[in-house]
Amino acid sequence: MDPTTEIEELKRMFIFSLRKKYPRDSSSAIATATVHLLRKILNRENPKTMNDLQVSLANHCKRLHAAERSELIIINMGLMISKLARDEVLQKKGGGEPEPLYTLWRDDDETTEKLKTADMKKIKKDLQASIKELTSEIDSSRDCIAIQSTELLFNNDVVMVHSLASSKTMHAFLTHATKSGRKHRVIDIVDEEEQLESAPDFVSPIELYEVASRMPETSKVVLVAAAYFPDGSCLVPAGGHQIALLAKRHCVPVYVLAPFYKLCPFFMTDPDSLHTFRSNQLPFDLSAKSVGLVDCLHPAFDCLQSDLVTLFVSNTSCIIPSHVNRLKEDYYHAQDIADY
């Protein structure tokens, strides 16, 4: 089979596998799947220069993301691999490590020239190895975040959490704290009544409308990010904005669990541009009367401005919102972001 059709098929398989899952797979699974897909694509395309690699990765990611608008992870993974390839080239060729302070600027001419002429065949093996490292980092991020729970949750804390049922990371975070002997209470905010019964033992479930009355007794709020941005803002599952505002009012710290693969390198704070809406929530028998007359909005995410977030719990450490921009430099290259 010729490589282009093969790549197209791989991409379509990937999109189908995303769409087949409802409710959606965990983010780490999607991140791993994306990395595997991009690795396979690179293997088949065999780009000659760094520039080729950057352009092809960007194009593939654009199209994949266009098909699944809510999955920013796809873009993140593409740019991360691009940065890994850059680092490999520079290591081989011996270019100057870019000074952290100047990274907002483009590469100097010398480095650009090196990148253009670099033979990608030589670094292929090293790139494969670093992509493997990336996947193992993704796999371990859940545990890394969970371990930090002991530094954040203490005895007699009352922790309010949201979307526990859909986030495995949140689950791991709370169970780790419980296992290491912390005596805290957990209040879980559930979206649907059915989840009231299926909640795990260590939590007391409440519904969203009860948040205001329970906030005074709460000492910590923990949310899960769907994506977070360099300016320190983040997207959380719908309802999170209300919770964070209440927390601010009662001076309760808000921690947002944010594994590195959810760090989106663009400033994009308008959740509308993500094009993510959920279902119309009315019962179907009402549609006979309401169809075409009622606009029922059900966005998937809320946007949290950086002042509502106390700490992002990433897999390496806890960071304050204003440091997210610095964290971005660890994973992305300014050139890639600018060219995307």
Partner: peptide
């Protein structure tokens, strides 16, 4: 109209076609 109003989520106009790209906007 029902499809546009997202009654059948997760079957929605923007993620049902394997070859074309749609953006979903408010309203």
């Amino acid at each position: 109209t029902l499809l546009l109003e997202r009654w059948f989520y997760p079957v929605t106009p923007e993620n049902s076609d394997p070859t074309r790209f749609f953006s979903a906007n408010p309203r």
